[in-house]
Design a protein around this nucleic acid. Structure first.
Lengths: 234, 234
DNA sequence: TTTTTTACATAACGCTGTTATGCCAGGCCG
DNA sequence: CGGCCTGGCATAACAGCGTTATGTAAAAAA
């Protein structure tokens, strides 16, 4: 139509269109032809601007993390680090529920078949959680969480909330196990589990935990199905 | 080649081939043509036996849950329900790490673009966790977990472990946050969070939790990106 | 103004799931 | 035994995908 040269807004325009398509019609609408048609151009624009669909999806993932960071930045510091932490959890879930398809692209790989994130992309995403790590540090410093690695605690919270959100988006959580109820219970349980009662509680629970071996890893119901030997035994 | 009629083993043979392809070469090898070529037949076999790729993928999901159930059945009952529960968690993670691609298909939707599970499929998968629910009941009955809904507790554990496993498979967890370390810490924290120390711990933590409002859900950094109004507030 | 760069449109390649057509081996019935 | 008929499978085609080669024309550079 109007082939203007070096249009700096072309990139963000395409990203916006792709985001709208993803939000409105789901992942299957994320095709180069569809995006180009929506933008009134040909599929080549995707390649000149992003080098291919992977590049565009990558930008959308960054956009997704940017939105998450925006939500995080809107969490008001209450002075109570534990309360702040729970708010970060709620913000995380709210972001995922508000942008379900985008969240699926970020973590679930609901994108063009052969797409996979770069290590740098994952690093970028993990960096978004530095806010949570800092909050965990504050919780520990305030004596509300037991002394330990703040990053470890933050990862515990992250993985737990991520798991619930993922299953919630996949419609795996149904009544009467309301996702919101499970979420709030999860939040409380995580705070308690990370809390200062840990040491005493470990006395009653940990003894059983230590009794457990790991012989389960030797059980292989059908070795012929064995996939890549990824399981290193952690 | 040898067009034998009504071969009841054709289905499982195709499933086996598909599972092997998925395990060996990843999700992108899961194509009707590839499977047919591997089976020495044409793509029509996929349609006569499964009605399409979705049907075959569905069967593979069932296969995945069957493997998980097998692992669960190999968890020896130690007499300590909390220890058993932790073992279920380890079995769950072990199954996911042993069959990473299959696990991704089960929950991540790493399958043909437009594929989605039926409500019955999810019900089927959830049924696999009834073992964990029973174990939670035993934990509660033994006074090791605080009184409450066993299904709720089981779902908490499930979502937490699932989240960690998902991020681990997606290479989102890196050193020094070793996934195994996070996992064991998560297990312990979950047991403590669900434990009988909950009531007392809530006294110190819950007060802050109750102070939190939910005003975060009103923050919308960029409404133009708003996706489907899925967020019902749980 | 002339040259070069470069973004884009067009068309094609190889791939995907899916479907219509036709063949041909079985089971069934006369 | 011979003819019919059902149905699984192979072949080929259709629509769509990501990607790429080629050509064109406009913007930047000389």
């Amino acid at each position: 139509m109007s082939p203007r040269r070096s249009d700096p807004q072309a990139r963000s325009a395409l990203i916006d269109i792709a985001a709208g398509l993803l939000a409105g019609e789901g992942p299957q609408a994320l095709s180069a032809r569809r995006i180009a048609a929506e933008a009134g151009s040909s599929t080549m624009t995707v390649y000149t601007n992003f080098g291919g669909m992977s590049g565009l999806v990558r930008e959308m993932v960054h956009e997704g993390f940017a939105r998450l960071e925006t939500y995080f930045s809107h969490v008001a510091t209450t002075g109570d680090p534990v309360a702040d932490m729970a708010m970060y959890g709620r913000a995380y879930r709210h972001n995922a529920l508000t942008n379900p398809h985008l969240y699926a692209v970020m973590f679930g790989g609901a994108s063009p078949a052969g797409f996979s994130l770069t290590a740098e992309d994952r690093q970028h995403g993990r960096y978004t959680l530095s806010t949570v790590v800092e909050c965990a540090s504050r919780c520990i410093a305030a004596g509300r969480f037991r002394p330990g690695d703040a990053e470890l605690v933050a990862h515990q919270l992250w993985t737990a909330v991520h798991g619930l959100v993922t299953l919630e988006l996949g419609d795996y959580l149904i009544e009467p196990c309301n996702a919101g109820v499970v979420f709030e219970a999860q939040l409380t349980g995580l705070m308690v589990g990370a809390g200062d009662t840990f040491a005493s509680a470990t006395r009653s629970v940990g003894s059983s935990l230590e009794r457990m071996g790991k012989e389960i890893v030797n059980v292989d119901p059908d070795p012929s199905y064995g996939e890549s030997p990824r399981h290193g035994g952690g």
